[in-house]
Design a protein around this nucleic acid. Structure first.
Lengths: 208, 208
DNA sequence: CATTATAATGTCACTAACTGACAAAAGTCA
DNA sequence: TGACTTTTGTCAGTTAGTGACATTATAATG
């Protein structure tokens, strides 16, 4: 084994001091931001406030997060990305027809996302309280969902071929995402104490 | 007839110089903004540029429009508002059950909005080109749709009573709006030359 | 360990979207 | 014309976000 081979092997185990500090700082910024948002409100908290709380310059904040919205909704977008990844890697469920397969895959991914939300209910509940009150945050979130929609669409078309024509597929995805969104809204409105997956399931079934 | 009665009567006929100038200026700002957006791009156009084009101070711009997004998407939001107004004023269609009535009303409003879009296809086509490329504009638009969703919901619940439980109604509205949005997207992508109403109709039917 | 390369950070300067306060100008009406 | 109200411009300020560059910390190498 050569030295390079060893260091490459260790790469996953030892991310290096630099990497570790970066992750730590990112986490710290996120936590400090959330704390401040809850204490004084989102709009009453400036980037400078957050930067001071973790003792970095405002410039450095923007090297970790592109915007104030992102520092709040990063985890939310991560969940959506995870759903996308799931759709990319998971095998298509066995189904009668190709279109059935697309439908089943989409459903599975929505439930998977619901599952992820449920695992971090506390954090998402806090974020939701803010998104409800601040238009720019809500708008940011909706845009993330739109991006996800087109990505889901591309991926599904890639994997199921011509089972659906593009525009029908778009509608299918849009309604599924809408169902997820509405279910999520209700779940969070009720304190995130119910069974989100069951809720999503029932909403998806109500689509027909 | 008293003097006040006369002036009140004339109010609709003679809006007064002040009012007329205001409307004119608002129109001028909107047109100048759209022109500049198309010429140099949305993000390359500053409020100051727009203000200079119509020879007002930037401060005055903000007395007419709360944001850059609004000056572009004002008409779009107006169409949605018109749909809301329609739902508020139009009698509920005759239907077997109350839930059927809610469904029919929602469908009628979506088609009405489609009709309004079609009447100004040129303007909306231009706006859409921009919204596609600029995240902040797209996000703003989606937020407007979200607001509309809750408003539709409130109104429908008011008018159809307990035909649907709140959350089911929310889902119904969300899917209808999603269908409208996707249909609109496709129509605009194809140059706004097709029959949007027919498209919306087919998408709404595909919901089942 | 010393040195060199590389990546992260801070500082500075800048643009641009807004907002409040107040005075000047224009429209309204008697 | 003159008093009253609305609109506008000016000014000063806050905040988000970005590019450039010097400084510092980490990493890699002899």
């Amino acid at each position: 084994m050569s030295d390079t081979a060893i260091s490459e092997q260790d790469q996953t185990v030892r991310p290096g001091l630099r990497e570790r500090k970066k992750r730590l700082l990112q986490e710290a910024i996120e936590q400090a931001a959330l704390k401040l948002f809850l204490q004084r409100g989102y709009e009453q908290t400036s980037i400078q406030d957050i930067a001071e709380a973790v003792m970095i310059s405002p410039r450095t904040f923007f090297r970790y997060f592109p915007s104030k919205e992102e520092v709040l909704l990063g985890p939310t977008r991560a969940v959506v990305r995870a759903g996308l990844e799931r759709l990319r890697t998971l095998p298509l469920p066995e189904a009668q027809s190709e279109s059935e397969a697309a439908y089943a895959a989409l459903r599975a991914v929505m439930l998977y996302i619901a599952h992820l939300y449920q695992q971090q209910r506390r954090g998402f509940l806090l974020r939701y309280q803010i998104a409800r009150q601040v238009p720019s945050v809500a708008a940011f979130y909706l845009y993330a969902l739109l991006e996800a929609e087109t990505a889901f669409c591309d991926l599904l078309q890639e994997r199921t071929g011509e089972a659906y024509e593009r525009s029908r597929l778009r509608l299918l995805v849009a309604t599924h995402v809408a169902a997820l969104r509405v279910a999520l809204e209700r779940w969070l409105d009720e304190g995130a104490e119910g069974d989100l997956q069951a809720l999503v399931k029932s909403y998806l079934e109500a689509l027909h």
